[in-house]
């Protein structure tokens, strides 16, 4: 099984090393080959909705940037994980820039899924979706919105299982390992 982690955290920021070390190890212990990508080190342009990937050259993005390396990984990963500080309930802009390019991995056709109209996925992945959001301090509104955004993404990705984990400044470093481990377990990844 393959996993891809798109990280919007800064390396010098809170929890970067604790999350990276524990997440990568937890996945490796389950024999999941995983790629951790620090988006801050990548050159990624924003989606300008040109429609090239949609009806001009389906599945191909016209932009020649580092997303060209990331798209194949996203297409082949059964587990997709987003890690990000929470910006007003959303992922931060660093991660959002990459997520906005997702339409390359969706079909331009429509299907009815969970009682809603959606674009089906081009590659039947990811089966499992996990989002990890970081807050400086607990904030119910932002936590609820982050869970909603994550849940909406799981529906959009047609993932079979999804989880959302929020870590705030009150957490002890040694609790992070348990929380990550529990989230992966809840996803049902074997």
């Amino acid at each position: 099984m393959k996993g891809l982690i798109l990280n919007g955290l800064k390396k010098e920021g809170s929890f970067y090393h604790e999350i990276k070390d524990n997440l990568v190890k937890t996945l490796a212990d389950k024999n999941i080959k995983n790629n951790w990508i620090d988006l801050v080190e990548k050159y990624i342009e924003y989606c300008n909705g040109c429609g090239y990937c949609n009806m001009k050259n389906p599945g191909i993005c016209a932009k020649d940037d580092d997303m060209q390396e990331i798209f194949p990984l996203m297409a082949k990963s059964e587990i997709l994980i987003f890690v990000s500080p929470i910006s007003f309930g959303c992922y931060n802009s660093q991660l959002k820039k990459a997520i906005d390019r997702y339409s390359v991995l969706g079909l331009p056709t429509y299907s009815v899924y969970k009682g809603e109209l959606h674009h089906p996925t081009r590659y039947n992945n990811p089966s499992y979706f996990l989002s990890i959001g970081i807050l400086n301090q607990p904030n119910k509104d932002m936590e609820d919105t982050f869970k909603l955004v994550s849940n909406r993404n799981a529906v959009c990705f047609f993932s079979n299982e999804s989880e959302s984990l929020i870590i705030d400044g009150s957490i002890q470093d040694n609790e992070i390992k348990n929380k990550i481990s529990k989230s992966i377990k809840k996803l049902g990844v074997n």
Partner: peptide
Amino acid sequence: PLHILKFIMNILNKKKAKENGINLYAQPY
């Protein structure tokens, strides 16, 4: 009803794809 909406939208998109000679379901990766 969503299934009617889906049906109409898919017919329009598939027609456009046929006219332009493109494969909507391509998997380049």
